[in-house]
């Protein structure tokens, strides 16, 4: 299942070379249907997405979520067709689905052998299960942010949690936009290594 696209997608009918051709030739690109575009995107990023999701949920659930992400994107006809954006959207959608999945997991596990009352309590009292990953990992990421050099941390927090753009941050902190980007990369380096070490 996980190695196949969902049945009935154009992938089954059209050779990959034709899809890629449709992407690179200007005229064909505009004419490419939404379904074709999404399918092409999946052909390219499916393996990556599967790996990504496997770190958040069990492998068999990850395969299911990949499929669900695909259908979700099919419905989202207003996607802007630029690759960096499309990929970011793809992974964001999958991340949200993984979050929902973990939420549902609480209920599913509970209803195996508990009464309805307990089930309702389980639904209300979701606690850490609402989170994408365990408490320990979050605590480590939080600590890593706190431990960043002051300027790097400020750049990261302003961008991540206050939605400021690099030029805005540059102006506030009296830095060049380029060094804001560099500090952003530094922060991401630290956090990525925490993720790599713990997940």
């Amino acid at each position: 299942m996980m190695d196949q696209l969902p049945p009935g997608t154009p992938q089954n009918e059209r050779p990959e070379s034709e899809l890629l051709h449709a992407q690179t030739s200007d005229g064909a690109s505009a004419a490419m249907s939404h379904r074709e575009y999404v399918t092409q995107l999946f052909t390219k990023y499916r393996a990556s997405l599967q790996r990504y999701l496997t770190r958040l949920v069990r492998p068999e659930d990850a395969a299911e979520l990949v499929q669900e992400t695909y259908f979700r994107l099919l419905r989202h006809e207003s996607m802007v067709r630029l690759e960096a954006m499309a990929r970011a959207f793809l992974f964001q959608t999958a991340t949200n689905l993984a979050r929902d999945h973990r939420r549902r997991g609480v209920v599913r596990r509970s209803d195996q052998h508990v009464a309805l009352d307990d089930l309702e309590i389980a639904q209300e009292h979701q606690g850490p299960e609402q989170q994408l990953v365990g408490e320990q990992i979050l605590a480590q990421i939080e600590r890593a942010i706190a431990d960043l050099p002051a300027d790097t941390r400020t750049v990261f927090l302003l961008h991540r949690f206050r939605d400021l753009s690099y030029p805005e941050i540059a102006k506030l902190m009296n830095l060049s936009t380029r060094s804001v980007a560099r500090k952003m990369a530094d922060a991401l380096e630290r956090l990525s290594s925490v993720v790599e070490a713990t997940l």
Partner: peptide, 17 residues
């Protein structure tokens, strides 16, 4: 691709904080 997944995951998880 793997390194990029890490970075993306770090970015997404930071929002959980």
């Amino acid at each position: 691709a793997r390194a990029y997944e890490n970075t993306e995951l770090a970015w997404e998880l930071s929002a959980e904080l």
